[in-house]
Amino acid sequence: MGQIIVMTSGKGGVGKTTSSAAFATGFALRGHKTVVIDFDVGLRNLDLIMGCERRVVFDFINIINGEAKLHQALIKDKKVENLYILPTSQTRDKDALTKEGVEKVMEELRKEFEFIICDSPAGIEKGALMALYFADQAIIVTNPEVSSVRDSDRILGMLAARSRRAELGLEPVVEHLLLTRYDPYRVERGEMLNVDDVLEILAIPLLGVIPESKEVLRASNVGMPIILDDESNAGQAYADAVGRFLGEDIEHRFIKPQKRGLFARLFGRM
């Protein structure tokens, strides 16, 4: 039976879709058959980040409504083996997500995939609730910034009270913190919350710290998940986080400012 993982945050723009694409690709690269689902009905974007926007025929909502078969809607990634994308509808709204409909799709996916990543929309409305409802594990994507941290706490409350596991009194959803857009230089200058502050406030285990990186925008421009850019700090940080998720003991990197040479210090931040 596959594991259902929700990528959630409450706040928008913190990197849920970027992280969903990175984790899905990371799992697949390590040989785990993975599907990533876009739950942001009406605001489809995962397809762009995964670079498969021109191959969408049927979507998640078509399957829920019985208008297409699951295998007709699943898009097989062209670059990475074992990786599938289930895009959402661009024309309908969140009401198209019914609990029964989503459950049926989840049960079917569980039989075939090791990891099912649910890319949640922002907010705490129906779309976000449906994305987290069936989760076994949750990756809370947070920026080191007050509104994001507060919203993450709110989402943790929802996971504890309104997920399927909570309602049925099963083992609670396993929570992981993914701190994104972290700028060690600003943290050092006291301009940004540091990783320990956020951990102390949210009190959930740290899965990874993804440094702020220009390469993330570049990767999204070309529709390539950032984890495939193994030269970039962000890509490497995601690869580490995937490893940790799979139980490997990997030291955190990119939390401290990197030592800069004489040249770099004289001519500005590199």
């Binding site: 007050v146 507060r150 709110r154 301009e191 919350l193 502050d197």
Partner: peptide, 19 residues
């Protein structure tokens, strides 16, 4: 006292209430 310090303090207070 850095702005990050303020951020942490404010968050701790508001979130204690919300929890």
């Amino acid at each position: 006292v850095t702005s990050a310090h303020h951020a942490k303090e404010r968050l701790q207070i508001v979130m204690a209430h919300e929890r």
